[in-house]
Design a protein around this nucleic acid. Structure first.
Lengths: 285, 285
DNA sequence: TAACATTACGTTAGCCGTAACGATA
DNA sequence: TATCGTTACGGCTAACGTAATGTTA
């Protein structure tokens, strides 16, 4: 069995061209390399080099050995990385959220159920969530569309409806319902981290002037003290926590309502079964 | 960079279940293994084992590590084998012959052209010769059918016709030509190593009683001193070296005549170009 | 003469095996 | 009490670095 370090020294020599240079690169001495290469040849019972009195170079077998050595050295390196990634994955749960409300609802639940684990949450458009589940970036995903592929376990876990929030003084306040396209040309307050909702509103009202706010507090302040329309959610309205002095007007667009779906890999169904159960009971609404 | 020996010791432990048993299997001591496994964990900065005071077993990360370790240990082992095979392939030319005459003609040529190399020759039915060229078992093949696939370089290199050889006293001697099927029911002398010809005669005269002889000398002795029919070849007849006291009768079957084709991998065309040239000039006939 | 590979040689660090220890079933 | 894993310790060898040697461009 040939040790990785020998293969590594061989590839270093191939990269450098001379033993001296390779020795420097490897932070070792030239004689040490000479001996290693001889040891390698001895253990293989193969000649890998053409030697003249003060020059050494690879022969055909040696060149092939370098090709193979590069592979196994790289594999050894990757093995360590994969193992560390696996180990980390045992201690962390990464979740992709397509919208803020599911995260608000689920975060305390998950912290409770998987105590001691590191929880990492992403919020973004959920186009690639299936791929992220497959490649292990996420262990859980909340999407606004169901996954039917049987590599996944997927269940509906709630729904949410968007409303337009305006002061009673606003011209929009007189309509019984509003189309998102009515916002074109208007300035609209919007939180920046709202996942797939961002796509919805930008697609339906592309010509609105969106005032993007990173912080909730800034958003609330502006919403409370200005006349700009903004969005509210059935989740907050249902809980009576609306923006002071504003009314919520239904949106006519079908896209303003969505169902949410919780998904994991089929192979991990059992690991997350309690979470799925709880979400079925409580649900997002 | 983790050395292969450490991975190897890990897999040995996984196979054996206890360090003591693994130590025995590896012809080393138990404390040595304890230290190796601790060193492995230290170099990875990962915990791979659940330890109680007098028991040690793999944790989840450890089990994953074993899976990966098995792979790389196996790859290291295979690397050595592949390298040795490659080295040997540089010093040897393996040739598949579908019949004895091409071998007789080409052996001196090849020994001459590739002096110092080990020449290894196979003789057998040439069904799988293309596959053998592709997988590297053969560098050259002589077939009785052409290869049109452009992964191969293939040229006609001669032909041969089979005759029936009988004493003048034989009842068969009166026919101007004979069908192989006429041999059904008769005893026929046959050399055992005749490649694809064996299939030809056994297919055309399946009910003949073939007296298989391994050695040329035995065959010649019996052919000279018995009345059993046997086969002769245009190659020998053309050179006047027929069996004493026998006549050669043409065979009516189309299969009694064949063309020979010399083939190598397209990628090796240049390496063997001189041989192809010489065979084009001299040819088998 | 500068750069390179190899050989010689003294040193040392790392690994091993034996022995002792502690824990468990 | 037998088995197992860990720790301690002393010894040894394999690999190292320095220095010297020889060769080539």
């Amino acid at each position: 069995m040939i040790e990785i370090s020998l293969w590594e020294q061989l590839t270093a020599f191939a990269d450098c061209g001379t033993l001296s240079e390779a020795a420097e690169k490897l932070h070792t001495s030239q004689p040490a390399l000479t001996r290693s290469m001889k040891r390698l040849e001895a253990e293989l019972s193969l000649s890998l080099f053409k030697r003249s009195k003060n020059h050494i170079s690879l022969n055909a077998t040696g060149r092939m050995a370098v090709n193979l050595a590069r592979q196994i050295v790289e594999e050894d390196r990757e093995l360590v990385l994969r193992l560390k990634a696996y180990d980390r994955s045992l201690r962390t749960i990464s979740i992709g959220y397509c919208a803020p409300v599911p995260q608000m609802v689920m975060t305390p639940l998950i912290n409770n159920l998987f105590e001691g684990m590191t929880i990492s949450a992403d919020m973004k458009e959920d186009d690639d969530f299936p791929a992220r589940l497959l490649d292990g970036t996420y262990q859980l995903a909340v999407l606004h569309y169901p996954l039917t592929d049987d590599r996944f376990f997927c269940r509906k876990c709630g729904s949410e409806t968007l409303y337009l929030s305006v002061p009673p003084s606003s011209p929009l306040a007189f309509y019984p319902e509003i189309h998102l396209s009515d916002l074109n040309g208007l300035s609209v307050l919007l939180l920046s981290r709202i996942g797939f909702w961002m796509n919805v509103v930008k697609e339906r009202a592309p010509k609105a002037n969106y005032l993007l706010l990173v912080q909730d507090s800034s958003f609330m302040e502006l919403a409370s003290h200005s006349g700009y329309p903004c969005f509210n959610s059935s989740y907050f309205i249902r809980r009576g926590s609306t923006i002071p002095g504003r009314i919520n007007i239904p949106l006519a667009d079908a896209e303003s309502h969505t169902d949410y779906y919780l998904a994991c890999l089929s192979s991990e169904t059992r690991r997350f079964s309690t979470l799925f159960d709880q979400m079925k009971k409580t649900g997002i609404s």
